[in-house]
Structure formats: structure tokens, C-alpha cells
């Protein structure tokens, strides 16, 4: 089952502070969507509206053709995995998974057990005694095994060590290919997670600055390096993101697809055209004026 998500001119204000400003996007394929944004960009606010944790101030959100808020048919298919506070949770992993299984119709208990083993989580220990990383691993287990058509991981990796994060990423890709669904990963670990994304949405100060297919996004950004004057002339018509100067050598990051002709021209002028990473793009699209 695929439920699409259509967000239109969504606004959210906390008192007078605008947390989300005219956010619009469409998620209509079972893919992994990377939601990137700096601290306070509004990622969690946006995701909590998708998950019906709160209502928007204005604008529309439609999931599978219906408004999700207080809509049982939709809410049961949306899983929101965030850094839950477990300090009072005396249940253990086994009880906690059984509980989730009662409310999530597509929950796969066997797969959950498999993940629990993979993450080496103790079954009988109270969850409040877990380390942060173990609690995150439990959250991720619940998120993956619920197999909800819309699954949201909001910085779900917090506290996990590198090998544990690696297990998470592998399982995510594997399970997504076996059971395609809309997965939204919000993160600022961009360089580590970029290969997971099929599509990228960048949120900055409450507004969407970019939504783009990962592949085309990375080909859109490039770095042009060479002698200062030649580089300057070449990049003049392009959208420039960042400039680095070392002696007479200049390197400019540009955003916008280069045509074959542009590339040839660059080559003829002795300029070096290199790729830039999503991390670079992210940093330069969301930097400045603060």
C-alpha cells in the first residue's frame, strides 16, 4: 500500500514565532526521503504535524487523500520515531514490542526479534536502564518492524555508536527494498547518510529551500577550480554557493546543471570541474545571515 503525502502552504506558529512558513511538497513514491535542516530549522515541527502530534496553524496536509489529524484510518499507518524519553519506562523490550504489535496492523514480530538480536538488546531489562544508544536502537526496531506505509525517523540515530548506526542503515535499505514504503529520515549527519536518500528536502528557517532527486541534485552542484580570472568569468552566469581562494587559484561551488557545452568550454579553458557532496550543498544552502 502506498499513501502519498501532499503538503500545501503549511504554516505553524508557536505564539508569534513562525516555525514553518508556507511549506509545500509532495511525497508520492515509496522512497527514502532525506529531510535536512540545521538545528531549529523546523524539521521536528514539520514531522510532528505529519504524525498528527500537533495541528498546523494554517495550510493543508493530506495523506492518502485525507487530512490525517485525528483520522484513525491514517494515523494507524504513520509511525513517528523520535528520541522518546524513556526515563520512566519500566517495561522491557519484549513487553514494549508486544504493545506496539497490538496497535500496528503491519507489525512483523519476527523481524522485530531479528533486529533485537542484531542490535544485541537485552529482552528482559527495563528500558529506562538502557543507554541512550540502546534506546535509539529499540526505537529504530519499532520503526522498522511496524512497516507503516509512512515511517518517519527523526534523528533516530542519536547516541548510537558507529557500528550500530551502520546496522540501522543496512537494515533500513534492505527492508525498504523488500517492503517499499515512504520513509522520511531527518538528520544532520548528512555526509554519513547521503547514500540512503532517494530524494532530498532541505528545510531552512521554516521554509523549503530545495526538494530534489538525490542523483540529479548531486550532478547539479559542481566545483570549478582554476586561475582566478578564468574561474570568475566562467561562473558569472551561475548560482554561486561558496568561494575559496588559495594564491591565484580559485575554487567556486556552483549550483545548477552544467551543459555539455559548458563542460567543454571549462575543459578548453583549463578549468577543473569536480563534483560536490550533498554535505557541501547543504552547508552552503543553509548558511549565512544568522
Amino acid at each position: 500500500m502506498t499513501l502519498n503525502v501532499a503538503v500545501n502552504n503549511l504554516n505553524l506558529a508557536y505564539g508569534t514565532y513562525p516555525a514553518l512558513k508556507d511549506v509545500s511538497f509532495l511525497l508520492d513514491e515509496p522512497k527514502i526521503y532525506g529531510l535536512l535542516g540545521r538545528n531549529g530549522a523546523g524539521k521536528t515541527s514539520l514531522l510532528s504535524i505529519l504524525a498528527s502530534f500537533r495541528e498546523q496553524t494554517s495550510g493543508a496536509i493530506v495523506i492518502g487523500g485525507e487530512a490525517p489529524f485525528e483520522n484513525a484510518e491514517i494515523m494507524q499507518h504513520v509511525s513517528f520515531i523520535f528520541n522518546k524519553d524513556y526515563k520512566d519506562e519500566s517495561d522491557n523490550v519484549k513487553e514494549s514490542l508486544e504493545y506496539v504489535g497490538r496497535y500496528r496492523s503491519q507489525f512483523d514480530a519476527e523481524y522485530a526479534d531479528y533486529l533485537v538480536k542484531k542490535f544485541k538488546l537485552p529482552l528482559k531489562k527495563p528500558i529506562k536502564e538502557f543507554s541512550k544508544g540502546m534506546q535509539s536502537a529499540l526505537n529504530v526496531t519499532i520503526g522498522l518492524a511496524s512497516r507503516s506505509p509512512i515511517t518517519i525517523f527523526d534523528e533516530a540515530y542519536l547516541g548510537m555508536d558507529a557500528p550500530t548506526r551502520d546496522i540501522f542503515y543496512r537494515e533500513l535499505l534492505e527492508d525498504q527494498s523488500n517492503h517499499p514504503r515512504i520513509i522520511i529520515l531527518s538528520t544532520h549527519l548528512v555526509s554519513e547518510m547521503d547514500y540512503l536518500f532517494d530524494e532530498v528536502i532541505i528545510l531552512h528557517k521554516g521554509s523549503i529551500v530545495l526538494q530534489e532527486d538525490f542523483e540529479s541534485l548531486v550532478t547539479k552542484g559542481s566545483s570549478i577550480t582554476g586561475a582566478t580570472e578564468i574561474v570568475d568569468e566562467f561562473v558569472r552566469p551561475l548560482k554561486q554557493l561558496n568561494t575559496q581562494q588559495l594564491g591565484n587559484t580559485k575554487s567556486v561551488m556552483v549550483y545548477g546543471e552544467l551543459s555539455e557545452r559548458d563542460r567543454k568550454v571549462a575543459q578548453q579553458k583549463g578549468l577543473e570541474v569536480g563534483p560536490i557532496s550533498l554535505q557541501d550543498l547543504f552547508i552552503h544552502l543553509t548558511e549565512g545571515d544568522d
Binding site: 504524525a51 498528527s52 485525528e70 483520522n71 484513525a72 494515523m75 494507524q76 513517528f80 522518546k84
Partner: peptide
């Protein structure tokens, strides 16, 4: 404080 967030995060409506 305890049960409402728990249920909503399991996809249960406030009404249910």
C-alpha cells in the same frame, strides 16, 4: 501525562 503521548505515538487518535 503518560498514556496520551504513548497512544498517539502508536497511531491511536485522541478520541479513541
Amino acid at each position: 501525562y503518560g498514556f496520551l503521548p504513548h497512544y498517539v505515538s502508536n497511531g491511536v487518535t485522541r478520541k479513541d
